[in-house]
Amino acid sequence: SPEEIKAKALDLLNKKLHRANKFGQDQADIDSLQRQINRVEKFGVDLNSKLAEELGLV
């Protein structure tokens, strides 16, 4: 269901964000992850996106 997909995506992105902060990645990478999280919260996951591929939806 779209809600489950959204939850999985947010979980994955939050893990990536945590790792980025923990290991001191570029601020641009961290900002990009934050924008992705905001986009998923607002609009859900686009099944044509790279994120959908990472989640194994495509």
Results as ranks from 00 to 15, higher is better:
Ser1Pro: 05
Pro2Ile: 11
Pro2Phe: 15
Glu3Asn: 06
Glu3Gln: 08
Glu3Phe: 06
Glu4Leu: 09
Glu4Ala: 13
Ile5Val: 09
Ile5Glu: 03
Ile5Lys: 03
Ile5Gly: 03
Ile5Ser: 05
Lys6Ile: 08
Lys6Gly: 02
Lys6Met: 05
Ala7Val: 10
Ala7Ile: 12
Lys8Glu: 04
Lys8Met: 13
Ala9Pro: 00
Ala9Asn: 00
Leu10Cys: 02
Leu10Asn: 01
Asp11Trp: 11
Asp11Ile: 11
Asp11Val: 09
Asp11Thr: 05
Asp11Gln: 12
Leu12Thr: 04
Leu12Pro: 00
Leu12Asp: 02
Leu12Lys: 05
Leu12Trp: 12
Leu13His: 00
Leu13Thr: 00
Asn14Gln: 13
Asn14Met: 12
Lys15Thr: 07
Lys15Arg: 13
Lys15Gln: 12
Lys16Asp: 02
Lys16Glu: 04
Lys16Pro: 00
Leu17Ile: 06
Leu17Val: 04
Leu17Phe: 04
Leu17Ser: 00
Leu17Trp: 04
His18Glu: 15
His18Val: 14
His18Tyr: 13
His18Lys: 13
Ala20Cys: 11
Ala20Trp: 12
Ala20Asn: 02
Ala20Pro: 03
Asn21Val: 15
Asn21Ala: 09
Asn21His: 14
Asn21Ile: 15
Lys22Gly: 06
Lys22Leu: 14
Phe23Asn: 14
Phe23Ala: 12
Gly24Cys: 10
Gly24Ala: 07
Gly24Leu: 06
Gly24Glu: 05
Gln25Trp: 15
Gln25Cys: 15
Gln25Ala: 15
Gln25Tyr: 14
Asp26Asn: 14
Asp26Leu: 08
Gln27Ser: 07
Gln27Trp: 10
Gln27Lys: 11
Gln27Ala: 10
Gln27Arg: 10
Gln27Phe: 08
Ala28Val: 09
Asp29Arg: 14
Asp29Met: 15
Asp29Phe: 15
Asp29Ser: 14
Ile30Ala: 05
Ile30Val: 10
Ile30Tyr: 04
Ile30His: 03
Ile30Thr: 04
Asp31Arg: 08
Asp31Ala: 09
Asp31Lys: 08
Ser32His: 12
Ser32Gly: 07
Ser32Trp: 13
Leu33Ser: 00
Leu33Thr: 03
Leu33Gln: 01
Gln34Glu: 10
Gln34Ile: 15
Arg35Leu: 13
Arg35Thr: 11
Arg35Ser: 13
Gln36Ser: 05
Gln36Phe: 06
Gln36Trp: 09
Gln36His: 07
Ile37Leu: 06
Asn38Thr: 12
Asn38Gln: 11
Arg39Glu: 15
Val40Arg: 00
Val40Lys: 00
Val40Tyr: 01
Glu41Lys: 13
Glu41Asn: 10
Glu41Phe: 07
Glu41Ile: 14
Lys42Ser: 09
Lys42His: 07
Lys42Pro: 00
Lys42Val: 08
Phe43Leu: 07
Phe43Ile: 04
Phe43Pro: 00
Gly44Gln: 01
Gly44Leu: 02
Gly44Asp: 02
Gly44Tyr: 01
Val45Cys: 03
Val45Lys: 00
Val45Arg: 00
Asp46Ala: 06
Leu47His: 05
Leu47Ser: 05
Leu47Trp: 07
Leu47Gly: 04
Leu47Lys: 06
Asn48Ser: 11
Asn48Ile: 04
Asn48Asp: 10
Asn48Tyr: 09
Asn48Val: 05
Ser49Ala: 03
Ser49Ile: 02
Ser49Lys: 02
Lys50Phe: 09
Lys50Val: 10
Lys50Ala: 13
Leu51Asn: 02
Leu51Pro: 01
Leu51Lys: 01
Ala52Asn: 02
Ala52Val: 03
Ala52Ile: 06
Glu53His: 11
Glu53Pro: 01
Glu53Lys: 14
Glu54Ile: 09
Glu54Thr: 06
Glu54Val: 06
Glu54Phe: 09
Glu54Gln: 06
Leu55Phe: 02
Leu55Thr: 02
Leu55His: 01
Leu55Tyr: 02
Leu55Ser: 01
Gly56His: 05
Gly56Gln: 06
Gly56Ala: 04
Gly56Asp: 05
Gly56Thr: 04
Gly56Leu: 05
Leu57Ile: 11
Leu57Ser: 03
Leu57Lys: 03
Val58Gly: 08
Val58Pro: 07
Val58Lys: 12
Val58Asp: 08
Val58Ile: 13
